[in-house]
Amino acid sequence: RPMNAFMVWARIHRPALAKANPAANNAEISVQLGLEWNKLSEEQKKPYYDEAQKIKE
């Protein structure tokens, strides 16, 4: 299954978030990633939607 825009973004940002929160488990990191993603504007998300579309094609 191809990655969606959030997954493209999260793949880039997960390592830094995990390093900054070494005690957090994957579920907690995923929740935090979701919160951070939701704070982004549509303009900030656009490159990730574009990349996800390329992956689908």
Rank of each mutant, 00 (worst) to 15 (best):
K45M: 03
W37M: 00
P15L: 07
A23W: 15
V31D: 06
E28K: 04
A27F: 09
K46L: 08
M7D: 15
R11P: 02
P15Q: 10
N25S: 15
S30H: 13
L40Q: 02
S30C: 12
D50K: 12
P22L: 03
V31P: 01
A16Y: 12
N38S: 14
V31T: 11
Y49W: 08
A16V: 14
I12H: 07
N38F: 10
S41K: 03
L17V: 13
N26H: 15
H13V: 11
A52Q: 03
Q32C: 08
N26Q: 14
E42P: 14
N4E: 10
P15K: 09
E43S: 10
E51P: 02
A10F: 06
H13N: 10
A16Q: 13
E57K: 04
N25Q: 06
L40P: 01
Q44G: 05
E51I: 14
L40W: 02
V31G: 03
E36Q: 10
L33A: 02
P15A: 12
R14T: 04
E57L: 08
S41H: 03
E43G: 08
A20Q: 14
A5G: 09
K54P: 05
R11Q: 14
I12V: 09
K45L: 02
N21H: 13
S30I: 14
S41L: 04
M3G: 07
N4G: 07
Y48V: 01
E42W: 15
A10L: 05
K45D: 00
A52S: 05
K46N: 04
A52W: 12
A5M: 02
H13C: 05
K46I: 06
N38Y: 08
S30V: 11
F6L: 01
I29L: 12
Q44E: 14
L17F: 15
W37S: 00
K56E: 10
W9L: 00
A18P: 01
A10T: 05
S30D: 14
Q53G: 05
S41Q: 02
M3A: 07
Q32D: 02
E43I: 12
N21I: 04
A27M: 10
W37I: 00
I29P: 00
E51D: 05
W9A: 00
A5K: 00
P47N: 03
A16H: 11
Q32M: 15
W37G: 00
K19Q: 12
A20I: 08
S41N: 11
Y48N: 01
R14W: 07
N21Q: 07
K39C: 05
R14S: 05
A27E: 14
V31Y: 13
P2A: 07
I29W: 02
I55S: 04
P47H: 03
G34C: 11
S41Y: 02
A20T: 07
E28W: 15
K19R: 05
A18V: 14
A18E: 15
A27G: 09
P2S: 07
K45P: 01
W37T: 00
D50M: 14
I55K: 04
E42G: 05
N38C: 06
F6D: 00
K56H: 15
R14M: 06
